[in-house]
Amino acid sequence: MADTATSPHKSLGVPLTAFAAGAVVAVALGVFSRFHDATLDGTTTLGFADVRDMKVVLSVVIGVLAIGQVVGALWIYGKLGIRAPAWLGKAHRASGTAALVLSVFVGYHCIWAFGFQTGTVHGYDVPPRAIVHEVVACGVFGAVVVKVVAVRSRRAPGWFLPVAGGLLFALLIVVVLTSAGWYLDEKGWPSR
């Protein structure tokens, strides 16, 4: 039995509140994206041929960082059977921050330049892959909210952090595969 004087009370309220807040963020992004007038004004290509090419390259980087996050977390928590070096925690936080910053950058360009598209756009039917991508991409930012709460909370149950991290990882991988993965399969690596 845990000593309640030295350990904080674990509460289901923390994950429930985090999931509710994450859902609000995801839905709000989806609604804004759907009703925002998509434009290339206010976007950048970072020297690539167009916004899509830039997003593909950065999405691949995000996917690699996400895989590194899972490996790092497993290593830090002793699940790989080898002792984690002292620098790994800082590297894990830095790569997670980099993945988040890049995700916000790519997400901004998705929402601003393309919006949430359904039905027929410019005479073309929006494919189911693109709709799945749009829905799951909004979910990524909701999952970021959940993950940040999980990392920061001392009152959350022990299962909350791995569930939050796993959810974020799964959503990121689906987003990367339904965008960059599809693009690379169809068109190959973007040129500069």
Rank of each mutant, 00 (worst) to 15 (best):
T43W: 11
R192W: 15
A150P: 12
R34N: 01
G81P: 10
A143K: 15
R83S: 15
V121H: 07
I82A: 09
K10T: 13
S103D: 04
S95V: 08
L12V: 10
G119S: 09
L88R: 05
V126Q: 09
W87G: 03
D53N: 06
M1V: 13
H109F: 03
L167D: 08
I62F: 08
V151N: 07
V149Q: 01
V132P: 12
I76T: 04
A86P: 01
P157G: 12
A23N: 06
G81R: 09
R152C: 06
A98K: 02
W112N: 15
F114A: 06
A38P: 14
V27Y: 01
I173T: 13
H122F: 12
V121A: 06
V24F: 04
V51H: 00
P85Y: 00
A130Y: 11
L29D: 05
G81H: 11
G78V: 02
V121L: 02
A66V: 14
K79T: 07
T178Y: 12
R192N: 08
A164C: 03
A23I: 02
F116I: 06
G78H: 01
V176C: 08
A143F: 15
G142W: 06
A5V: 13
E186C: 02
F160M: 14
V174W: 05
L80T: 14
F160T: 09
V51M: 03
H122P: 00
W182D: 11
G13N: 08
V132F: 15
A28M: 00
A143D: 14
P15K: 02
S11Y: 09
I131L: 13
P8E: 09
L88H: 00
R93P: 00
A23M: 11
L12N: 14
A20D: 07
A49T: 05
G78I: 00
G81M: 10
L58H: 04
L171V: 14
G188M: 07
L74N: 05
G188W: 11
V144P: 01
E134N: 12
R155H: 14
L16D: 03
I111R: 04
L65G: 06
S11R: 14
V151A: 11
Q117L: 06
A98N: 01
G72C: 04
L58F: 15
L12A: 11
L29W: 07
E186D: 11
V104H: 08
V64K: 08
L65W: 07
S11L: 13
L161Q: 10
V61Q: 01
V144H: 02
V149R: 01
A91C: 00
P8N: 09
P85W: 00
T6K: 08
W75V: 00
T17K: 12
A5K: 11
R93W: 07
A98Q: 02
V149W: 04
G42E: 05
D53F: 03
V140C: 14
V14C: 01
G107L: 08
G78R: 02
M54G: 00
T97Q: 04
A99D: 09
V60D: 08
A130R: 13
L177I: 07
P8Y: 13
F35Y: 15
L58Y: 12
S59C: 06
T4D: 02
V31C: 10
L65A: 10
P157C: 11
V64T: 10
L40Y: 12
P8L: 09
R34A: 15
T45Y: 11
S191R: 10
G22P: 10
W87T: 00
T4S: 09
V60H: 09
M1I: 12
F35V: 10
R192F: 15
